[in-house]
Design a protein around this nucleic acid. Structure first.
Length: 267
DNA sequence: AAGCTTTGACCTATA
DNA sequence: TTATAGGTCAAAGCT
């Protein structure tokens, strides 16, 4: 599969990724079997039980706003003529439609050049400079999901250390690997597996203070500044793609209180 | 007290 | 079969 097929499909599907939930998912399927249905390597996925996919499945405005990359490139996000979404990594960095996951197997979208060129906006480092290192490193949850870091490794193929994250949602096997440069910039994100759940509604999460603090702490915003320089998706091990009907609704997070709290804590 | 990150050790896949 | 690299585990410590 190639990245061109992805955008081609998006273009051919003629969907607006922002506005169309289900259509977005449909259009998101990077590969079809010719009948408009996605190809699945492991098993035929159940039909999407979501008659009205939550908007968070695509983007939340706060996240969009948080990303200077998105802002800086927003003028070219969607082709007015084709409707093609030129930045599939934005979709994936936000969330992975579970059923699209296997179709994205071994798909890699590299956007290093783009990111490096468009990352002149200095992140709000005032937080990162004050908080403990692990808090800084945890700047990775802007996609709305809760991630727990379970390992870090310096790999040979890259001079930057990799951090390994698991989704904190119960029974969710989604993982992501974040490669972070010495200056704190995220140079690569690799998603493995897809979420079998919607974005958690952090206000309802147990121990919401702790989770919310990390999920929406401003330092994560700082990370967002540089995140998505390169995002890869590996859904090879994704088996359980069934969507649970327990769809929570998290449209937009009012992160102002969290930011304030974080500021207090960071001081 | 709960949940998180850190980090060295261990496990596994691959050449 | 062995060496190496990548991925994961789990105890310790932190917020």
């Amino acid at each position: 599969m190639s990245s061109t097929s992805f955008t081609d499909l998006l273009a051919s599907s003629g969907v607006d990724c922002y506005e169309q939930g289900e259509d977005f998912l449909r259009g998101f399927y990077p590969e079809t079997n010719g009948s408009g249905l996605p190809k699945f390597k492991t098993a035929q996925p159940p039909p999407l039980p979501i008659s009205q996919p939550p908007q968070n499945f695509a983007f939340s405005s706060s996240e969009l706003l948080d990303s200077p990359l998105l802002l800086s490139s927003s003028h070219s996000l969607i082709s007015p003529t084709t409707g093609a979404f030129p930045f599939p990594w934005q979709i994936q960095s936000q969330s992975q439609p579970p059923n699209a996951a296997s179709a994205l197997q071994e798909e890699t979208y590299g956007v290093q050049d783009l990111q490096k060129k468009q990352d002149p906006v200095p992140p709000p480092r005032e937080f990162a400079d004050r908080v403990p290192s692990y808090m800084v490193v945890s700047r990775n949850s802007n996609d709305g999901y809760g991630w727990r870091k379970y390992g870090q490794k310096q790999v040979k193929k890259s001079e930057n250390p990799r951090s390994y994250f698991k989704c904190t949602y119960p029974n969710c096997v989604s993982k992501k690997i974040v490669e972070t440069a010495s200056d704190g910039q995220v140079t690569e994100i690799i998603y493995k597996g897809g979420h079998n759940h919607p974005k958690p509604e952090f206000t309802k999460r147990p121990s919401s203070s702790a989770n919310a603090r990390r999920m929406f702490n401003p330092s994560s915003v700082a990370s967002d500044q540089s995140e998505s320089s390169s995002i890869s998706f590996d859904y090879g091990d994704l088996e359980q793609k069934s969507f649970k009907s327990e769809y929570g609704e998290i449209e937009e997070e009012d992160e102002q209180p969290e930011i304030k709290r974080q500021k207090r804590e960071g001081e």
